[in-house]
């Protein structure tokens, strides 16, 4: 069967975000690339079950998430390396958010429970609705909402985000604690 150009294009268009999702799941770029490759292979093998015109990204994210769950999670997640691994991927970053803030965020995200992390990323960054995220994760919409909420609360604690006025001094304090340069 020859792959329809539209389908191939929609698969390729989904890859950058799929890859970012994979990195946030497994905390390692090389492993994430393997995961994406396996996802594409699996998708191609099952392309007959994809309904043209339906949500290609959601379909691919579902496959990737299931692969991660069934195979990759057996290996121990390299939490201790999450900060360094993420830092390597940081070639450019938005001016509003400092490099250090992003690394701190990545490290905090890595400590979240897997359920919460994937729900938060799908809804807050990959651009899926709560309903789509629930389908991808195979659970109820209410479950996704509760996981996202718990993930945010945990992150707020880890990153010591209490109040907007805290950002200035607290950042400096954290810098002292982590030995990073403030300037």
């Amino acid at each position: 069967m020859s792959l329809d150009d539209t389908i191939r294009d929609s698969m390729l268009a989904a890859v950058p975000s799929l890859r970012a999702f994979a990195i946030s799941l497994c905390g390692n770029v090389d492993r994430a690339d393997d995961l994406v490759q396996e996802t594409l292979l699996r998708a191609l093998a099952n392309i007959h079950s994809f309904q043209p015109g339906t949500n290609m990204p959601a379909w691919l994210f579902t496959i990737l998430r299931n692969l991660f769950r069934s195979e990759y999670r057996k290996r121990r997640r390299e939490v201790e390396d999450a900060d360094g691994s993420y830092a390597e991927t940081l070639k450019t970053y938005p001016a509003q958010t400092s490099h250090m803030e992003l690394r701190e965020f990545a490290a905090a995200l890595a400590t979240l429970q897997e359920d919460q992390r994937e729900a938060l990323v799908l809804v807050g960054a990959s651009g899926f609705s709560y309903e789509e995220a629930a389908e991808i994760c195979g659970c109820a919409v209410g479950t996704i909402k509760s996981r996202v909420n718990r993930a945010r609360i945990r992150l707020a604690r880890l990153l010591a985000i209490e109040d907007p006025s805290d950002f200035g001094p607290d950042r400096a304090t954290r810098a002292v604690l982590t030995g990073d340069d403030v300037a």
């Binding site: 993420y86 938005p94 992003l102 965020f105 995200l109 960054a125």
Partner: peptide, 11 residues
């Protein structure tokens, strides 16, 4: 905002 910045940096 931090989550999106984190994710965008991976794209």
């Amino acid at each position: 905002q931090q989550l999106r910045a984190y994710y965008d940096a991976l794209i």
